[in-house]
Design a protein around this nucleic acid. Structure first.
Lengths: 112, 112
DNA sequence: CCATTCCATCGACAACCATCAATTCGTTGA
DNA sequence: TCAACGAATTGATGGTTGTCGATGGAATGG
């Protein structure tokens, strides 16, 4: 393995490596942060598996969390553009966003 | 769209939806949290693009962050099992982990 | 043996985040 | 008109996290 390591000289640090454009990184991080929570990832997984929009009251019943907390998590997914809502009467039905970027769609395909 | 929405009865909430095993979710969340930071995602991107292990001093030079902070971020990637380190003299060379789970590998292929 | 260099760890601090109780808003139905 | 229900918002709180300065440890070179 040592042969594959670059030569080094003390005090000579360092040629910056090839970087990804910060905008691209930030965009990915926004989605990753939205998904980096057990409750929200589970929500997305359920929505992805469901053929029909899911009433948020189902999530409130399924998780052992308060109703405001569930609403808060769903709002995060909404802000990240991952889900969309349709309100019918007193109920709110959520589904995966229809206009997901291909990269985001691929991400969900791998994850859930 | 209304036709695709399930019928609802007041006060009847709710049949729990089909859930993903919590262990699976937690495992994914651990990786997602490790990647849900601009600095760390950039690091992973650089490591994925590089054919040779990268000295951590290159990252210290590339980012406008202190050396302890860079070391801290790399430790997070290490704890998540995403990267491995080889120490040669006073230098530490990092690379993507060789034994990444297929799911994690696919995740990185989509992301970076 | 000592100074230098690189890296990791520790301690501290501010910012952020997940959570809940309480409240508010919109809708329904009596 | 008003009570009941679902959902979102607000305010507060404890825990987590990103960041830095200071310190410590290991290897190198004089």
């Amino acid at each position: 393995m040592k042969a594959t390591l670059p030569e080094r000289v003390k005090g000579v640090c360092c040629p910056p490596s090839i970087m990804v454009p910060p905008a691209k990184v930030d965009a990915s991080v926004e989605v990753l942060k939205a998904l980096a929570d057990p409750t929200r990832l589970q929500m997305v997984a359920v929505l992805k598996r469901s053929t029909r929009p899911v009433c948020i009251c189902d999530f409130t019943a399924a998780f052992e969390l308060s109703q405001p907390t569930i609403s808060h998590h769903m709002a995060k997914l909404r802000d990240a553009g991952l889900v969309e809502v349709t309100k019918v009467g007193i109920w709110a039905y959520y589904r995966l966003a229809g206009h997901l970027e291909p990269k985001t769609r691929a991400l969900l395909d791998v994850l859930v």
